[in-house]
Design a protein around this nucleic acid. Sequence first.
DNA 1: TCCTACCGACCTACTGGTAGGTAGGGAGAA
DNA 2: TTCTCCCTACCTACCAGTAGGTCGGTAGGA
Lengths: 213, 213
Amino acid sequence: MVKPPDDLVAPASTRDVIIAAALHCFAEGGYEGTSLNDIAAAVGIRRPSLLHHFASKEELYGEVFERILSDFVGPIEDAAAGTGEGWARIDEVLVTAFEVCAANPDHVRLLRREAIDGGAHLGIDLAAALRPMFDSAVAFLRREMDAGRFRPHDPSELLVTGYGALLSSFSDAPFLAGLVDEDPGSPVSLQRRLEHLREFLRTALVDAPPSAP
Amino acid sequence: MVKPPDDLVAPASTRDVIIAAALHCFAEGGYEGTSLNDIAAAVGIRRPSLLHHFASKEELYGEVFERILSDFVGPIEDAAAGTGEGWARIDEVLVTAFEVCAANPDHVRLLRREAIDGGAHLGIDLAAALRPMFDSAVAFLRREMDAGRFRPHDPSELLVTGYGALLSSFSDAPFLAGLVDEDPGSPVSLQRRLEHLREFLRTALVDAPPSAP
DNA sequence: TCCTACCGACCTACTGGTAGGTAGGGAGAA
DNA sequence: TTCTCCCTACCTACCAGTAGGTCGGTAGGA
């Protein structure tokens, strides 16, 4: 439970290696589709050794999710905690969120799996964890719309739309790769996707495009 | 493989009942998270009886997916096969797709699961099945943009965005229900969501809103 | 008399988890 | 220094439970 302070000294503790391997396996195959043997094999140890570090599969999954919330959702929350106004603020959060997603595709996939399973899978209440960020985003959007800086939309609908548009291109990447003749994870593809999302959202939100041809 | 003609006579053949139950179970728990016992219990028979109708779990899953493609993707393809022009055509497809999703939330969830798993899970190549529709949609969008009826966007990026925005609100419904204080499946909620998607897409695509206040 | 639909009993493989044991490193005492 | 003690990390062997799938048999309608 309590993290020992030797985390600072050890370069990569076995626990961390296990969590990283488990995150990848769970993202790949889901909770039910991943056996403790799979994870142990990825680490290079036997299952009982793995269970020496984590009391149960469920507990391991919980820690994996803590990791996701801290090093994936965290940076996005930080960016969202800014104080900017208007489109610039949205843009900053969008770019940050996109970069975090691009840097951690496994995180996105597992997050998505959890969302599909209801977000309250195993002692995890994803919605409750994300709700503060969601609510403040709604408040921000409403304020900006009232101030006339954004076109009027339903703020929470808008967020759901953005959420879906952003996450889907990462969580469904292997599928989408079969629709377009390109690796969605390639730099050029990512760059194009980000620019599209920014331009698309800006067009929908801001009254007049600043420099449309 | 070949559907027997007695489908026409029987009001609901055991096969169909099994497929329907399996679709629900798979949507709920995923392929790995669903046992044949679960499905058999939902139907009201024993596992061996179920395996009398389908040779294996994998074959059953395949037939479930055929069902999804035929009675879920099919109607959307039909709507997309129209000959309209400009926003009206997009709108028609969007509304149809939305209604199909709303009427078959299990289908959406299972489709989403499959997309996350890569779309080529068990002899199913989802991307290949959807690709013709996708390609013709890209061609349509490109044509309309070239004709100046839509703002310029990358057509395939636009489709991915729309795909994500539309499907996510259904596939992640149980999670999103925890973000907003409302059942996303309620009629009023669905209506608002659809109107938002239409308005949002129209704003982004069409140069000037036809009747903005 | 078949044939279809169904069932109980059984099989093997694998699941999460436990029991018990061992190698090795550090601390302390002689 | 060396012997002992203990603790951590890991192992093999095993457990009960459940997975998908097979076998042999039966009830009942055509």
